[in-house]
């Protein structure tokens, strides 16, 4: 709770700037500029901060819009649409601004003398209602400009009086600009489609052929390799097995003697000084046992396993060749 009260515009924007580093620098500056304007427009900074919830949430919202724009950018190569797709996140930022300014939460002002919260009637500060109205008016004008002639003026007047109207109004207003784009697309499509399709078709079979390669063994080399590698690997295995088993034996001896020494020391020594010396020696032995145990694991998993893996991978590298599939 303290963090919420301590956070201010500077912190919010700094945090948001860190979170939006995945964007291109220009886009990031535009988004941060929009948020900065949002704070400048807001009369109550804390109320706006409460409405925005957290920089992380805003970053997620922007990222969603930004990524959706990027995905379409990667799949579609028409240069005319790039700017529109890039602007997706700015539309989201403007929508957030409108929502934040219109739905700033009502904070109750409780006097110090007041004993119960229910003593005083709940009053909505004027500034919030004025801001909400201003935001609604802005949205209405934006909707009018977006969908001219579709919404009758009578309906607009009726919606202007009730507060949840902008949400209902946005739904028909948003798809309207999309229709002209769809209508305009067929004009561009015939010009670009013939240029794109012939370029992509010839590459497909080559790509598939490049991918479909089969590993075939060089039989003679493989047999020779097996004949040489197997005895050598066995010899190496035996050579490595000796230190491995020795380290295991040493670990078992050290740990068991140390544990036995610690257990028996407490009952055997009446003098604390002697007890301390025996315990110290046992601890040093225990540390040695631990190192021997680790050495055993390293020899078993790292050295022996690595040697076998290396021999197999070397055999694959030398004795197999990649051939294009028929």
């Amino acid at each position: 709770m303290q963090e919420v009260s301590v956070i201010n515009k500077q912190k919010f924007l700094a945090e948001l700037a860190k979170l939006l580093t995945f964007m291109y620098e220009d886009d990031r500056q535009r988004a941060l500029g929009a948020y900065n304007e949002m704070f400048d427009e807001a009369e109550d900074e804390q109320a706006l901060l409460l409405a925005l919830v957290s920089p992380l949430r805003q970053a997620v919202e922007v990222a969603r819009a930004y990524n959706s724009g990027k995905q379409t950018l990667s799949t579609e190569s028409r240069p005319g649409e790039n700017e529109d797709k890039n602007n997706n996140f700015m539309e989201t930022v403007y929508r957030i601004r409108a929502e934040a300014l219109s739905t700033q939460p009502v904070r109750e002002t409780v006097s110090k003398d007041q004993i119960s919260l229910f003593d005083a009637p709940l009053e909505i500060p004027k500034e919030y209602t004025e801001q909400a109205r201003a935001a609604e008016e802005e949205e209405e004008t934006a909707a009018e400009s977006g969908s001219e002639g579709e919404v009758p003026p009578e309906q607009e007047e009726a919606e202007g009086e009730s507060s949840p109207a902008p949400e209902v109004e946005e739904a028909p207003a948003e798809p309207v600009p999309a229709e002209p784009e769809e209508a305009a697309e067929p004009e561009e499509a015939p010009a670009e489609a013939p240029a794109a399709e012939p370029a992509s078709v010839p590459f497909e079979p080559e790509r598939i052929a490049a991918r479909e390669k089969v590993r075939k063994p060089r039989v003679f080399l493989l047999m020779l390799y097996i004949l040489i590698a197997v005895p050598l690997t066995l010899a190496g295995f035996v050579l490595l097995l000796v230190p491995t088993l020795l380290s295991l034996a040493a670990a078992i001896v050290c740990v068991s003697v140390a544990v036995l020494g610690i257990l028996s020391a407490f009952g055997s020594f009446p003098k604390i000084a002697n007890l301390l010396v025996a315990l110290g020696a046992a601890l040093i032995l225990l540390a040695a046992g631990l190192i021997f145990l680790m050495l055993f694991i390293w020899l078993l998993g790292g050295a022996i396993g690595g040697m076998i893996h290396g021999v197999i991978s070397l055999g694959k590298k030398w004795c197999y060749k990649e051939v294009a599939a028929e």
Binding site: G261, S264, S268, F269, K271, I272, A273, N274, L275, L276, V277, A278, L279, G280, A281, A282, L283, I284, L286, A287, L290
Partner: peptide
């Protein structure tokens, strides 16, 4: 860390008058 603890224990034991022969015969 274990070796350090052991060394400290041995050092403290020596300083407080441990007798090595007694320790050896007891073990």
């Amino acid at each position: 860390i274990i070796v350090l603890l052991g060394a400290i224990a041995i050092g403290v034991g020596y300083l407080t008058g441990a007798d090595l022969e007694t320790v050896y015969t007891t073990l």
